[in-house]
Computed example of a mutant assay.
Amino acid sequence: MLRSMYSGIAGMRGFQTQLDIVGNNIANVNTVGFKKGRVTFQDMMSQTVAGASAPTGIRGGVNAQQVGLGSQIGSIDNIHTQGNRQTTNRALDLALEGDGMFVFATGIALDANAVDIADVNLQYSRAGNLYLDDFGYIVNPNGQYLLGVNGLTAEVEGQEPDNITVGAEQATRIRIPESASSFSIQGDGTVIYIDANNQTQEAGQIMLANFSNPGGLEKVGSNMYRSSVNDGMVGTNGIPQLIAPETQGVAQIVSGALEMSNVDLAEEFTDMIVGQRGFQANTRIITTSDEILQELVNLKR
């Protein structure tokens, strides 16, 4: 059989994957905190028809003769560039300007006290659309608790404030009491509220996790990421070091705004056209190869 037919099949498979990535990007063009994907290609192994030969005293060198056998997926990347900021003027809408991610946790009981972080499910996100639950804790749309440190959380139903051991630090959920008349979140993550006596109180400080290779994080859906062995987490033994905003090179928190998707529609439509034409061109290779085979079969006639 003709090599070109199999090369065409490999090309069609690769461009189909590219169109899948482009379609997902376009579908999430308005998703808060979404980071676009990108696919790259690389050539497959080549069949050596004739090897190279070195020059001699009477003849020059000859290059190798190789026939390529198509293309394959080289990588599928998550591009963690800064997304555009959309102003909402809602106090619990937070955008990150710079590196870092919010840290969210599940698996914390309301009566927990000094829970080891190894027993807690941690996930990370750039999506800062946050809410208050029935007890006043700051959570994301999935009900996962936003983590901070040094929280002055009031007792819930007579129980002591809960902490999570993170190395030498104490991470905590952040709770705004029901008696608070108003609250605000500063650029360094500090959550401030006005109590019933019209006094300013601190509910805690939102902390961030940072990764030297955020492209190594794994998407788990719902705008969330989980750690992998190749994300370059700043921390030890898979436990993140919680970093205060505006320190150690991590992001500033902007309250009243959201970081939107970093998808560029013009770029995606261009990639879609290129992918479509590449797919069509590879189908033409298969069609042409089939016509050549048909001519060979008809030689007997």
Rank of each mutant, 00 (worst) to 15 (best):
Q47N: 11
A95E: 02
R3G: 03
P240R: 07
M44P: 00
T283D: 06
E259R: 01
N223Q: 13
I285S: 05
T270A: 13
S222F: 04
I243E: 06
P214H: 05
G204I: 02
A64P: 04
G215C: 01
D93R: 01
M44F: 00
M1V: 03
V29A: 04
V229E: 09
N24G: 00
K219Q: 13
T247N: 12
I243F: 06
E267K: 01
D162G: 12
R277Q: 13
S289D: 12
S261K: 00
N298Y: 08
N213R: 08
I26N: 04
I253F: 00
Q280I: 13
K219C: 05
I138Y: 11
L146P: 07
V220S: 09
G68T: 12
G70I: 15
K35A: 02
N30M: 01
T287V: 10
F135V: 14
N262P: 12
Q47P: 00
L242Y: 07
E169N: 10
I292F: 09
S4L: 07
A54N: 14
L92T: 02
E268T: 04
L296G: 08
D133R: 03
L130S: 05
S7H: 06
S261P: 01
G249S: 03
I192V: 09
R13Q: 11
V67G: 04
N223Y: 09
G83P: 03
A180F: 11
I108L: 14
G167M: 11
